[in-house]
Design a protein around this nucleic acid. Structure first.
Lengths: 338, 338
DNA sequence: CTGTTAGCGCTTTCAG
DNA sequence: CTGAAAGCGCTAACAG
């Protein structure tokens, strides 16, 4: 164990051969021990393990992968969140990696932002550089999901895809959450409920709107819809529109917390009190939702659970088990804005 | 190009050999073309490229890596953010990946949460499974940074490490931000400035506190420090402590926005108006900072820039260029809470 | 239970 | 400028 401090010398990593020589056995035997195969006598195994230890041997993944044709790695493909998706991205990165690493997988992070990046990803998967793919999220005008599915490599999605697909996904119960939120407003005696609705090209927004509409319909009420974008300012604008309409609402359901916060801002501008004059409920339970005055009633989506379910779903598929999509429950968090 | 729709057949990816046969040349020549070497006649190159195209040839990374001993991949090592680090994690994942992929690197995501994971990471790097490492963040009681640095593989850090290190890092000017925030309070005529201070084991907190203290000192003022944790509730508790002390403050500087928001909550409980009775300034400019009433004055830290700088720093090191740490400027964002 | 023997697909001298 | 040949480090039959 003599070393000079220069770091200029090439330590020359030990190979199976080195270990075999040291342990006085063949390469094959060392390989068996390293891979935990049963058919090795205990004493030989011990000798080999000692040699491995002493030499600091670490198997060369490239060589192994070359012959086994497995990579023991999966791709985590992320699209840039359009707005405010930080919490979800963070949870996905953390929990998906945690579960998959626990199962001995290596995680390759890939960004799906440009058309070029989509090509690269498809090539990577076609070349079997990964054993599986976690795709987050499946939205977008392209067909990345289907192109990946066609490679025959197991793919799982976070979020229901825009077009129905055989690829299994994990999603939260957006419709159910919206129903709960709307029902809550109804229970509070509100009857003129406006909805500040995010971009309809997002499946989650569609589902939330549908849940809302269905609940209104059950009570024979008419919807009042104002379209918005993703940020608070557009939510405020939509709310102003609602508020200055002929039939002023006594409550607002927003398809996201950002929009809801914008709506509260708009109410304040008009001198309306929340919740007395206007009750507001959002969706997502982002951190800011609990920081507003009054604090925002909203629908909590389980980010960590989603990520965990996603990772487990992929593991099932990698094991060849039959799998179907999973939908996680959401929960209404009642605060002061209603 | 005949295929049945079953997908059961093994398409058997083409290899160099296949392409060579098709193009009527040798493996070596195809290899040269694929790797863009100059010494190939134009017409042969064209023929080969056509064959590559027609066959859909993609080089096998494992085989290549086995012989070249390069991996063209870097590890992105993340620690779980203790609280509220989502925005930073999201930015890092996005921008670091973007820059590094642009440079032809593959990103391997690894979590540094447990001691076991640290061992795995070190082994992975020692085995030269990656050409470089991005470590986020370097905090923590362990010595992962130094262990990785000792492998001889280029390493860069996000955030200044607790113990001085030769490993280059990217950080934001925490002290400068705190000075600006404190100076701003002073300019507003405040003289009794309390500080709600996060955990001192975080280097960023230390730097922020130091910047604050130095500025107070310049004006001959005495500090009033209350210790807090990371969440809003602990910020509120620390603020209550400050507010009920003998010398009640007319302003509060918090080392994070979460704490500042908690402090505003505490002020409200006591019937104090913000900013009239108590000015509050935070640090970080998280999303919630602009959603409070009044909106929070705070110090913005450039998350995206940090991530970009981090990626570029690693690229420099991979190219063997000399590199030193970089400190990014912060900016005071004045809102209604002061 | 252990050793021998072939390669996996690619790059890289070394000749020609 | 191109081809032939020699492995990179490992696993997987196949014998023994």
């Amino acid at each position: 164990m003599k070393r000079n401090g220069l770091g200029a010398e090439r330590p020359k990593r030990p190979t199976l051969e080195t270990v075999a020589a040291r342990a006085g056995v063949s390469r094959a035997t060392v390989s068996r021990v390293v891979n935990g195969e049963a058919r090795v006598s205990p004493d030989v195994r011990a000798t080999v393990l000692r040699a491995v230890q002493e030499l600091g041997y670490v198997p060369n993944a490239a060589a192994r992968s070359l012959v086994t044709r497995r990579t023991d790695s999966v791709a985590l493909v992320l699209s840039v969140p359009r707005h405010g998706g930080e919490a979800l991205i963070s949870a996905v990165v953390q929990y998906v990696t945690s579960v998959l690493e626990g199962a001995g997988k290596q995680i390759t992070l890939m960004l799906a932002d440009t058309a070029e990046s989509h090509r690269r990803i498809v090539r990577h998967v076609e070349a079997r550089q990964v054993d599986g793919v976690v795709l987050v999220p499946p939205d977008g005008p392209d067909t990345l999901t289907e192109r990946l599915a066609r490679t025959g490599v197991p793919v799982v999605l976070l979020g229901k895809p825009a077009i129905a697909s055989l690829v299994p996904h994990v999603d939260v119960d957006n419709a159910g959450g919206a129903r709960a939120a709307t029902r809550h407003l109804l229970d509070r005696g509100r009857r003129r409920i406006g909805v500040v609705c995010g971009p309809m090209d997002l499946v989650a927004v569609q589902d939330r709107l549908n849940g809302h509409l269905a609940t209104l319909h059950e009570d024979g009420l008419r919807p009042m819809i104002a379209l918005a974008g993703l940020d608070g300012e557009s939510g405020a604008a939509a709310a102003r529109e609602l508020l200055s309409g002929g039939q002023a609402p006594d409550a607002v359901f927003a398809t996201s917390d950002e929009l809801a916060i914008g709506a509260m801002e708009a109410a304040r501008e008009r001198g309306l009190r929340v919740p007395e004059d206007l009750a507001v409920v959002g969706f997502g339970d982002i951190h800011a939702a609990s920081c507003t005055t009054p604090a925002l009633t909203t629908v909590r989506v389980p980010a960590a659970d989603q990520a965990l379910a996603l990772a487990r779903l992929l593991l099932s598929r990698l094991d060849g088990r039959h799998t179907s999509s999973v939908v996680l429950p959401t929960r209404l968090v009642v605060r002061a804005s209603t």
